[in-house]
């Protein structure tokens, strides 16, 4: 009786072992498939995090077209726009001619929440329409919620052409 009982016990142990193997195999294959499909796709989706845009000098106008002491809006292309970007490839900056060959370019985005700031020439202030942030003509915070001054773009003058270094 005990002999008869012992035979199925061994068989059960073998079956459990086979089942345990299959279970592990299923999980391993599921993991393999997920990794094979998922890793390249995750890399594709998160590509913008690892792709640093190039730095490109963009011309924004002839030096003679800017008056000393004046701040004007200039538009230019992003550094590496996608072919289907259309008008969204364009961006803008506030450009101030400080002296004969010295320019300062400010970002148009408020440091509070990114809304586009407007230049009030007679008041010599940048004002944000969203939450009332105000910046002085040098981009420093004059009033309101902005936590930081307006960011600046590097500028240079090459062959009478004013250029802005774009890394967007």
């Amino acid at each position: 009786m005990s002999k008869q009982n012992s035979i199925p016990a061994v068989t059960d142990a073998k079956k459990i072992s086979r089942r345990s193997f299959f279970q592990r195999l299923i999980f391993a294959l599921a993991g393999l498939m997920t990794a094979a499909v998922g890793i390249p796709l995750v890399g594709f989706i998160f590509r913008p995090l690892f792709k640093k845009p190039p730095s490109v000098w963009r011309p924004v106008g002839k030096i003679d077209s800017f008056k000393i002491g004046e701040t004007v809006a200039v538009t230019f292309l992003q550094s590496s726009p996608l072919p289907w970007a259309g008008v969204t490839a364009k961006t803008a900056a506030w450009l101030r001619r400080e002296s004969t060959d010295n320019f300062t370019a400010f970002s148009t985005s408020c440091t509070h929440l990114g809304c586009p700031v407007r230049w009030r020439s007679e008041a010599q202030l940048f004002m944000c329409p969203c939450h009332g942030g105000v910046y002085d003509k040098d981009g420093s915070v004059a009033a309101g919620p902005p936590p930081l001054p307006l960011p600046r773009y590097p500028t240079r003058v090459t062959k009478d052409q004013v250029e802005i270094l774009v890394t967007l």
Partner: peptide, 28 residues
């Protein structure tokens, strides 16, 4: 949708206007 047109005054749709106000009225 031209980001170089800076004469903009972005506002959320009505159901998020209240949060827009919270962000404006928060102590800095």
């Amino acid at each position: 949708p031209d980001p170089s047109l800076i004469d903009a005054n972005p506002r959320p749709d009505w159901y998020l206007i209240w949060y827009f106000a919270v962000l404006a009225l928060l102590p800095h």
